[in-house]
Structures are given as structure tokens and as C-alpha cells.
Design a protein around this nucleic acid. Structure first.
Length: 423
RNA sequence: GGAGAAGUGCCGGAGCGGUUGAACGGGACUGACUCGAAAUCAGUUUUACGCCUCAACAGUGUAACGGGGGUUCGAAUCCCUCCUUCUCCGCCA
């Protein structure tokens, strides 16, 4: 969440930036500042009253020690009246603090200066394209047909076992998953990311830390019996590894990677866009996360984009990188680049990675900080990106590389997969 | 799942109703000594939010001894509840 002090000191700037992401309820900014002023006033009053109570209580202790009971009784009466004076103030303080937090939580992150204005995906800016689109014959098959033809994925079986959107990978289809995961993790750890295997269920505090709660619980599967959420991305448990920590500057940057299954309820989207692997409820993804010095975060954002881009190259798939406009960015992001791969048989672009700088929006919630050389404490910046999400990569690998004799795999995977073709 | 025990600062470990933000030890940092280092001596060593101030890592107030709530003039210390850890039993990949 945004820092209240920053909002207080930069009210107009905050409104300007929020307008870029099409955020309409700008009055919340004013509301937050007013609540904060009220909070400060009430806290001063409450603190002063409490100080008097503390002093009187200490005095009572001394009087009792001396055996001056009567004087102590008089003091007790004094404290009682001070307390009844304090009570309504501290009640109101608590209410004000809650309202303030509630208000600030409604505000999304401020888009960085580089973020283009815009309402929807239409307004995203293509930064660059890479790879080349294959020339497929007119009768080229979509991946769901190829998956069936070569017996790689069984969508029907997933329906039977769980429900729609839970594909079952079989034989070489399963092995391809395993190869991709292994390859992505190796690629990330070679670049200095430390590998983690985190829990895939998290508690409410953790889900709050990265911004899934409040308000977005509908996107996650929830295990009510134990009050745990299935993670929508490894970002959630991995970023929380450093929650409530104060790091030393030489420890920076923190680079982490993790493979996890991801679960998304994605309620209400059906139809052509969700056929096959285009959109599923459970999928595999390898994530990268960094915690960095605030002055370095935009440099690191570009570095992470280029890290993912190189990986994309090795997969020999046509891709493009988009800079998201204000209206299409996630609630917690300050700047986001999306990677899309071209699905040649479906003839459309599919998102396979999203790389974002959250600045201090998440770390403020999680209180992830560092001490600078002057021993002063500041919030770190957090960033993350997919490197990569599997299903749509698999969809494109199948479609773009189909031949009359099988699916030809990119060189980078030959050793991992143990072969050049899937047939 | 059942029965016990415990959760204190960077670490170890006291305190078990009053001047304890917290003894003592270790570590770390600063200064002195030294050509330098070790040893020694002196000092420092949490965080958040207020007030004051041009500002301060200057002063001052409040809060925090696993989380939340309660008793009391006053709680790290008593009570309730939740979480976590350890030991024993049961079950189990």
C-alpha cells in the first residue's frame, strides 16, 4: 500500500498519477489525508493523557511502598477520572486508524512516469518483437488437437478427476513439463537467483502481503477448514520470505526463484479464449523475485525483462514485449512489461510472462526494509516476473513446431527432454 | 488426534505485579591505547507512531517481552484464547 506520509506530502501528485491508471475515486486521497490529520491529533491527546496516568500510577506505587495508603487512594481516584477522560479519545483513535487503513488500502499503486495513459489492453505499447512466425499450412492444428493426436494432454480426464481447467499431462506431455521446469530453474539459478520450493498454500497474512487480500479473495481457492489459500503464483510465498525483516545494504539485491503449481479460479470466463491450455485453473510456473535498493529498481526491471527475453530466444518462439498502459496494470504494480508468444495455429498472441516493479507497495505491507550506510531504515523495492509460465509456452511449442512427423523441439530442450521430437 | 512443557532484544539467558526497553554473558559497532593487530579500558547497540524543532541518527511522549483480549491504580510478570516449538503416546507418506 502507499505510504501515508507520502500521500500527505504529495497529494496532488498522487491524484495525477492515479488518474493515469483511470482510477476514479480520487476523493479517497483527500479522505486519507484528513483521517491522518485527525489520527495525529487524537494520538497526541491520547498519549498526553496516558502519560499522566502512567505518572500517577508510578506515584501510587511509591506511596504504597511508604505505607501512605490514604494518599494512594486519592491518587487512584485521580487515575480513574483520567481514564474516563481517555476512554472516548482512544476509542475514536482506534476507529480513525481503522478507517485510515481502509481508505489507503483502496488506493492502487502509482504508475511510474514511464507508464503510458490508457484504458485497456488496446492501449498497451509494443516495445519490441523477436523471433519469427512460422509459415504453417492452412490445415495447421491447434494445440488441443495436437495434444490429443500425440497423446500428450488429456483434458477430458481432468474433467473427470477434478473439473474443467485441470488438464492431465501424459507420457511425453508430462516429460515436457518436467523438462521445461528444470530448464527454467537452471537458467534462473545460473543468473544468480536462489532456488526455493515454498508451500503452495498460504495464510491470510501472507496473501495480504503481496496484495491478494483484501478484495481479491475471489481469485484464489480457499481451504476454509484451515483458513489457507492456494497460491495463484509463487510470488506470494516467495516475496513473503523476507516479511518483517530488516536487511543490511550489502545483502542486496535478494534474488529468488521458485517453481510452483499455480491455482486460479478465474470465475466466469468461458468460450473460445479458454480452449485447451489458453486458460486453466491449475498450471505450472517458474517465478523470479527480487528485493532491491529503491534507487536500483528500474534498472533491475529492465535487467529482468532482458533475462526473460533471452530465455524466450532459446525457446525459438516468436514473441513481443508490451509496456502496459495505466488502465491495464495490476493493482499493486508501478510498471509492468508483458511477454506474449505467437500461437501460430490459433493466430493470436498469448501472455506468458508479466514482469513488474512494485516499488514499495508490497514491501510497505510486508515491512521489508534495509539499513543504509547511515544506519537509517528504508523500505526495499520488490519486483517479480514469470520465467516462465508453462501452458501457453507448451501451446506454442506444439502449434508452431508441428511437422508431418511430429513436434520438433528447440535445441535448448533437447538434453532436458532427451530427444529432438515428440511423436 | 491425546498428554505434558515452553515461547523475552542480533544470539544465549535472567526477571514472574511497581523507577525493567528490559540484569548478566556473547556478538557487532565507535573511541582510547598500538607502526598495525590482538589483548585491555570506556561507550554504543530495537522498532513504530506522535510532540517540539528550519532540521537532526538533539530533546520528549506513547506503544511493543509469540498474536489477540481481559483483570489491576500499575503486567514481560496473573487470567482467557489463538498460533508456534519441544517431549511422550497414537496414526501415517
Amino acid at each position: 500500500m502507499l505510504d501515508v506520509k507520502f500521500i500527505r506530502d504529495n497529494k496532488e501528485l498522487v491524484k495525477e498519477r492515479l488518474a493515469i491508471r483511470n482510477f476514479k475515486e480520487l476523493f479517497i486521497v483527500d479522505e486519507a489525508v484528513e483521517l491522518d490529520n485527525k489520527r495525529k491529533k487524537l494520538q497526541t491527546e491520547a498519549d498526553n493523557a496516558q502519560a499522566k496516568i502512567n505518572a500517577a500510577s508510578k506515584k501510587i506505587g511509591q506511596l504504597m511502598a511508604k505505607g501512605e495508603k490514604e494518599k494512594a487512594e486519592i491518587k487512584k481516584a485521580e487515575v480513574a477520572s483520567l481514564k474516563s477522560f481517555l476512554q472516548p479519545i482512544s476509542d475514536e483513535l482506534a476507529i480513525t486508524e481503522n478507517s485510515l487503513t481502509e481508505a489507503v488500502l483502496k488506493l492502487p499503486n502509482l504508475p511510474s512516469a514511464q507508464v503510458p495513459a490508457g484504458r485497456s489492453a488496446e492501449d498497451n505499447v509494443v516495445v519490441r518483437e523477436g523471433g519469427s512466425k512460422p509459415l504453417l499450412p492452412g490445415n495447421a492444428a491447434p494445440h488441443w488437437d495436437l495434444a490429443k493426436k500425440y497423446n500428450l494432454i488429456d483434458f477430458e480426464l481432468g474433467n473427470k478427476i477434478t473439473g474443467s481447467g485441470f488438464p492431465v499431462y501424459i507420457n511425453k506431455g508430462a516429460k515436457l513439463q518436467r523438462s521445461l521446469i528444470q530448464y527454467f530453474l537452471d537458467y534462473n539459478t545460473a543468473a544468480g537467483y536462489k532456488e526455493f520450493q515454498p508451500p503452495i498454500m498460504v495464510n491470510g497474512t501472507t496473501a495480504y502481503g503481496t496484495g491478494q487480500l483484501p478484495d481479491k479473495e475471489g481469485q484464489m481457492y480457499y481451504v476454509g477448514e484451515d483458513k489457507l489459500y492456494l497460491i495463484p503464483t509463487a510470488e506470494v510465498p516467495v516475496t513473503n520470505i523476507y516479511r518483517d525483516e530488516i536487511l543490511k545494504e550489502p545483502d542486496l539485491p535478494i534474488k529468488m526463484t521458485a517453481y510452483t503449481p499455480c491455482f486460479r479460479r478465474e470465475a466466469g470466463s468461458y468460450g473460445k479464449d479458454v480452449r485447451g491450455l489458453n486458460r486453466v485453473h491449475q498450471f505450472d510456473k517458474v517465478e523470479i523475485v527480487q528485493l532491491v535498493h529503491p534507487e536500483k529498481s528500474y534498472e533491475v526491471l529492465e535487467e529482468m525483462v532482458s533475462h526473460v527475453e533471452k530465455l524466450m530466444h532459446t525457446l525459438e518462439l516468436p514473441y513481443r514485449i508490451l509496456k502496459l498502459c495505466g488502465g491495464d496494470m495490476g493493482f499493486t504494480s508501478a510498471q509492468t512489461y508483458d511477454f506474449e508468444v505467437y500461437s501460430a495455429a490459433q493466430q493470436k498472441w498469448l501472455e506468458v510472462s508479466s514482469v513488474s516493479n512494485f516499488e514499495s507497495f508490497q514491501t510497505n505491507r510486508m515491512k521489508i526494509r534495509f539499513k543504509d550506510v547511515n544506519n537509517k531504515t528504508h523500505l526495499l523495492h520488490s519486483l517479480n516476473g514469470s520465467s516462465l509460465a508453462l501452458p501457453r509456452i507448451v501451446a506454442c511449442l506444439l502449434e508452431n513446431n508441428q511437422t508431418s512427423t511430429g513436434i520438433k523441439l528447440p535445441k535448448a530442450l533437447h538434453n532436458y527432454f532427451g530427444g529432438e521430437y515428440m511423436a
